[in-house]
Design a protein around this nucleic acid. Sequence first.
DNA 1: CGGATCGTTGATCAACTTCAACGGTCGTGG
DNA 2: CCACGACCGTTGAAGTTGATCAACGATCCG
Lengths: 190, 190
Amino acid sequence: MNNLIAHIKRFVKIDAEDEASILSFFEEVDIRRKDFLLKEGQYCSAIYFVVKGLLRLYFVDEKGVEQTTDFAIENWWLTDFAAFDSNKISSYNIQAVERSTLLVISKEKLEQLFTLHPAVERYFRIIYQRRIAAVQMRLRYFRELSREEAYIHFSTLFPEFIQRIPQYLLASYLGFTPEYLSELRRKLIS
Amino acid sequence: MNNLIAHIKRFVKIDAEDEASILSFFEEVDIRRKDFLLKEGQYCSAIYFVVKGLLRLYFVDEKGVEQTTDFAIENWWLTDFAAFDSNKISSYNIQAVERSTLLVISKEKLEQLFTLHPAVERYFRIIYQRRIAAVQMRLRYFRELSREEAYIHFSTLFPEFIQRIPQYLLASYLGFTPEYLSELRRKLIS
DNA sequence: CGGATCGTTGATCAACTTCAACGGTCGTGG
DNA sequence: CCACGACCGTTGAAGTTGATCAACGATCCG
């Protein structure tokens, strides 16, 4: 069975006969490493479900440095929510860190899907709620922990994830420079 | 007409005859300045809609310093989403900054309300989506701007809000010390 | 094999914190 | 209505954390 349907079923009940109808709203997309799903300056009218692979959301700051603000692995949804919600131009990029398989749905189709299958709207209400909880926790860690503690925390919490991404992306995600991460690692090994 | 109903109607259509039914799920609560709706160590089984007034969400860090992570003014929802969603004990406090009037609903009642009035679940899906967009933007400002720039940005964007809160709460919200904010203000005035 | 990409190292520097002390103001009880 | 105490904002000195810059080494991939 499809990953997405399995994920939806973790949160809401859907009839077996509705599964195909729900899936028909989505388009499956394969994307190579380093390819883009969204580039700064474009409208962001779709949301992506990661079936397999790894995506990142980043922006480029005024100094030209890429700042990674989100990752998405299997069973995660990703988009530039600010642009998606407001129908404005995005100032973010979405790029594949690994070769990835996605399910894509446009904003309009998603709204049609909600109307036809209210259970899916409930599913989104639930995963949105969990996401708000997750972001709240992340903001807290960012606030409460020093950079060193944040690195230790994150790398002990998600060791398998650390393996999948290059170090400079982790540094960017945690909000510091690759040089500093390098220094931290040396300090922590000894 | 009630504030909450007006707010819901900004996002979804509801029948006039449903308004009373929806409101009957909520309890109106008045709370004095400095009083608490939630204390660290309690379960957080309710969510609050601010009819009038101003709330803050904060935690106490390992040094004993209060860290304010959210404010809620009129027409905003507030809770500790991490604790609310997971049914775990909260590590946050919710306190009234001003005398406030709230509408309160428990998690169970909210779920009953969703089932009885799907339009309200749609309303929550929509405001959750906007909230995720807002938090994403906030995380970006936090990342992109220096403390000085963050202060300038915030105080020009929400001048009337700045009036309502003491300076040490603003410093806490922006993630720095009251002393540093004081220094910034002096520097910026001259 | 060759070039680009990624991680490392060390020196210098800026941003922000910490701590301690002081002055003003607000609200509350006498 | 006044006086007192708690709370809040300010100031300055010293200390930390993490950024920046430049250069080098390793590795991966075409």
